[in-house]
Design a protein around this nucleic acid. Structure first.
Lengths: 199, 199
DNA sequence: GACAAGCACGAACGTTCGTGCTATTTGATT
DNA sequence: AATCAAATAGCACGAACGTTCGTGCTTGTC
């Protein structure tokens, strides 16, 4: 056993499995019955850990965010140099979407699923996404201040372009199973960095 | 009445509505009952037009592809100059995803939903997507041959980057409702064109 | 050793899902 | 106007959905 009370531990186990499952079938497609039988739990036993399916979905997102921060954000924070931080961030995200998550990035999936459905899930996704974009833009701004990026760089535009490359990778990799997806993404990223560099 | 027999016409009406609905709730989330009541049809009456839900989903995709070709591809074909064709393609796609479809591009939605679920739907999406990417790459190659693009341009990479920009736009626009999404996308596209230009 | 709290179970709830059958209505052809 | 096929509705089905409830085990506290 790892930590916490029994209930907290099984709750964690549930969320681990739910996280992987959700990346494949989506937050809506994920059904309590299937999840329960995957874990060898009863539907009601599992359900008791969350008061509703809505709450379960939100818990999955929070759980995913924790994983995301640990796998993608933290390694970047360890880098002092902002450009190195951006490079680390980029590579870590490719790893996250390509290997860590069974069906690609949870948030890419969830965002497409809920971008047109008002509610708590959507609101949480918006908040997460804002923070993520701001995090990228923040690193870009630091790279401007410290010199490697040109002074007139639009950090928000940089973050937007950064994100676009990730989305392109995710699509090529997951739909086409394109083995060149990573190479393509890296080239696009190199071009983005080159354009941002001061001359 | 437009054309064809009665059945063919209502089938078309069904698909028009289903197309819009699917962009919001997804191909899986779209349910026969809801679709029927939206159209004032009975579930079984609607169902008779398609032999299964799977067939309905495929029909929606085909229907969507027809719309896509008419709205996005055709205007581009009218352009003689390949760079102009690419510009038209780009603008038309923004229009397609931003205005024409209620919940954003059908294919972006469907791809995320089915990229990890083997079957006929996924296969069709792969085929469509291959054709789409090849279409972009083809225009890029023509732009190389005719001069405006540099000779050593990687057309496949160009198409990949093109597509990434569209995905970034779609996300910013639909999740964040970002009013700057189009401006951002256009700037990214301008940068892509500049990089591809011969010097 | 008694007792409360936490945790998981099985059964059942009302609803909706996709999918078939059987009528009945509608539209086209003579 | 009559006929026949095509198109739609009505009805029912088994399964699965999220959710609730009562009931036992297990665990830890006095």
């Amino acid at each position: 056993m790892t930590t916490g009370t029994k209930g907290e531990r099984t709750r964690e186990t549930i969320l681990d499995e739910a996280l992987q499952l959700a990346t494949v079938v989506g937050l809506e497609g994920l059904t309590i019955g299937t999840l329960a039988s995957r874990l060898g739990l009863s539907k009601s036993g599992l359900y008791a850990h969350f008061k509703s399916k809505d709450a379960l979905q939100l818990a999955i997102l929070e759980h995913g965010a924790n994983h995301f921060i640990a796998t993608v954000v933290h390694p970047s924070l360890a880098q002092g140099d902002p450009v190195a931080a951006l490079r680390t961030l980029f590579t870590a995200w490719l790893e996250w979407s390509g290997q860590t998550m069974a069906g690609g990035c949870l948030f890419v999936t969830a965002i497409v699923e809920y971008d047109d459905r008002p509610g708590a899930v959507r609101d949480l996704l918006v908040e997460f996404h804002r923070r993520w974009i701001d995090f990228i833009a923040g690193a870009a701004k630091r790279a401007v201040s410290s010199g490697p990026f040109r002074a007139d760089l639009d950090a928000a535009q940089f973050a937007h372009d950064f994100q676009s490359i990730l989305l392109g990778f995710n699509q090529a990799r997951r739909l086409l199973r394109d083995p060149d997806a990573e190479t393509r993404a890296r080239r696009a990223f190199a071009r983005l960095l080159a354009d941002a560099a001061s001359r």
